[in-house]
Amino acid sequence: MAMSFYQTSAGSPVSMHRSRFLYILIATIVVFSVFFYSPLPDSVDHHRDALVQQLANTAKLGDFGNHTTPDKPVDSKSGHYVPTGLDDVKSQYAFATFLSGSSTDPNDHDPSHDPYFQATRILSYQLLHAPETRSKNASIPFIVLVTKDVPEEKRSRLRKDGAHVVPVTYLTADWITTDYPAWRDVLTKLRLWELTQFERVCFLDGDTILTGPLDDVFDDPAVHLHHTGTDNKAIKSDEAPLPRNYSFAGVPESKPIHKYPPTDENHDYPNINYLNSGFFVYKPSLDVENYYISLMNIPDRFNPELPEQNLFNYAHRREGNMPWTQLANTWNIHYPSIEDLNGGVRTLHEKWWAPVNEGLRPYLESWRWRMEGFHEARDSVLEQQKAKGGFRDFRWSD
């Protein structure tokens, strides 16, 4: 039986009427504050969006070179690889995102001014707590990979929100450089393939807003395990060996103006073979990660302007031995519109603080205020529990 939202750890009931009134009052205050807040667009994000469209049309592969593979974390006694923690998690599935300190101004230490951090908190709230979007299976965790420059204050807040925070070391290559700090660390996303405790992981970029539960994405036929091809023409001697099998399913990059649901027949994709790396489902595998890292260490093997996206598009090119498979076109859309939202797309790949389609701004921003109002009330309840000598965490019960 689900624990009541207002039940203390010792079992003593808190006045439901009083707690509801407190929550409604707090939520009302923060919701109305939206009218006094006007976030400014991030010019770097708009530049990236333009690059995405350009590369979808003109993606080219580069020349070859040498590579090295960095060491993997091993147990000091057995010498065997040690999967990332999460010993308390029993699910075969997980949701995950990535957060680095370079996504915001390094001189701004106020988490409330970091839109990517707030976006990660919104994801946590939607996946774990919000009644209309949370996972139907409460055992599925939400994992946030963080780099060393994400301060403990932010990590602690994410853990308090219910996320599993997993610190990871950087993955970089000298030939891959960028003038934009927010893109500096994206190749560290390859550490996602070290989550070998799970059969499948659904990755979502931090700038993603849900409209409903995502559990069924793990049942999409595109996420099935595939045998790796053996076409010798697609095998390069300077790359690490391909794995025996793999699973990598995603969505194509869509045009800013498209119909819902987008289709190739309606010319809604600049290149239906060009993957958008903001939403995908994969099977964690050290062999796949080793292959990716070998590509990362070969200068000009892929276009470095969008590092991880173009690495995936090379590794999982349709004419290669590990072609990516396409999820149903209703799971995720980049450059979403009101038509997409009304049509029922399950996730909107859009920045809540700087949407391309201004008509979506009230909907996107409302999730921030809901998230903050929920956690203010939740933190208050947990403090009451601790003050009475007990503590039990909870999700919002039906």
Rank of each mutant, 00 (worst) to 15 (best):
Y314M: 11
Y314P: 00
A315V: 07
A315N: 07
R317D: 00
R318P: 00
E319R: 06
E319N: 12
E319F: 04
G320F: 08
N321T: 10
M322E: 03
P323E: 07
P323I: 13
W324V: 01
W324E: 04
T325G: 03
Q326I: 12
Q326V: 08
L327C: 04
L327F: 02
A328E: 11
A328P: 02
N329K: 09
W331T: 01
N332T: 08
N332M: 11
I333R: 06
I333H: 04
I333E: 02
I333V: 15
H334D: 14
Y335M: 11
Y335R: 01
Y335Q: 01
P336F: 12
P336S: 10
S337L: 12
S337Y: 04
I338R: 09
E339R: 10
E339C: 05
D340M: 13
N342Q: 13
G344W: 08
G344Y: 09
R346I: 15
R346P: 01
L348I: 14
L348H: 01
E350I: 05
W352A: 15
W353Y: 15
A354S: 15
A354R: 08
P355R: 02
P355Q: 10
P355K: 06
P355A: 06
V356Q: 12
V356H: 14
V356D: 03
N357C: 11
E358T: 11
E358P: 00
G359P: 01
G359D: 13
G359R: 10
L360G: 02
P362A: 13
Y363V: 14
L364D: 06
E365S: 13
E365I: 15
E365L: 15
S366Y: 14
W367M: 06
